[in-house]
């Protein structure tokens, strides 16, 4: 579905990621993990069209989308729940969802919104609240929900569990599994590696802008050197 080939991205002269090869197959959950500053978020923001692609290509659905503007990428089927959620804080929960679905006709809003609410029933109780007044967990749900409103083929989620209560993290991960059942392709960036390894099909470990390991999540779980070196598992 998504393939990054000799992918380098960054800002001006600063190269955040170099020569990354990454394959996100259709209908799977792929985890992109690694320490702070490894280039995970830059990778997602570059695929979304907000960070410069310095070299290589971004292939989505067999088309090179590296030259398309961000507004066009979401129409092709890539949506993002970015680092820090970046909700539209002065807008209500419902209006945040509405913005998420703007690329589709207004008539589809109710059905799409109801799908999101079936994943995150808590949001249903807060539809009229301003996004700024939600708890951290609810904000993360809204951020994912807003991205889903675009009816993407691929959803990219950055730092899903950061700063959330464990119970909220559980709810979000349950939703991911349900999304996968419904055929969604998910690219997940996390620092919480235990969690990623428990749901992901594939993982790629980034460090200082380079991929240092990639393969099946099951292999990653069973690889003691990897666990010790990069994942902080015990």
């Amino acid at each position: 579905m998504l393939r990054l080939e000799r992918f380098s991205c960054g800002y001006g002269l600063f190269r955040a990621v170099s020569e990354l090869e990454l394959e996100v197959p259709h209908g799977t959950i792929t985890g992109l993990i690694g320490p702070n500053g490894a280039g995970k978020s830059s990778t997602l923001m570059c695929v979304a069209g907000h960070v410069n692609l310095l070299a290589g290509s971004i292939v989505f659905d067999e088309l090179d989308i590296g030259g398309l503007p961000a507004t066009e990428r979401v129409r092709r089927g890539i949506a993002i729940a970015p680092e820090g959620r970046r909700l539209f804080k002065d807008l209500s929960v419902e209006d945040n969802l509405r913005v998420g679905g703007l690329i589709h006709p207004a008539g589809r809003f109710k059905a799409d919104r109801d799908y999101v609410l079936s994943l995150f029933p808590r949001l249903g109780e807060r539809l009229g609240s301003l996004a700024a007044n939600l708890s951290g967990g609810e904000q993360q749900m809204l951020s994912i929900g807003r991205a889903l409103m675009a009816r993407p083929k691929l959803i990219m989620i950055d730092e899903l569990s950061l700063g959330l209560m464990p119970k909220m993290v559980d709810l979000c991960y349950d939703a991911l599994l349900r999304l996968k059942q419904d055929g969604m392709t998910i690219l997940l960036v996390e620092q919480n590696t235990d969690r990623v390894l428990s749901v992901a099909d594939h993982v790629c470990v980034l460090e200082s802008g380079h991929a240092v390991w990639s393969g099946n999540a099951a292999d990653a779980r069973n690889d003691p050197t990897l666990a010790a070196a990069y994942l902080g598992l015990h």
Binding site: H50, A70, T71, R86, L87, F88, D90, R146
Partner: peptide, 12 residues
């Protein structure tokens, strides 16, 4: 509120 995110949802 957030021009970059607005773009990410197709707003020009």
């Amino acid at each position: 509120s957030d021009p970059q995110m607005a773009e990410s949802f197709g707003i020009s």
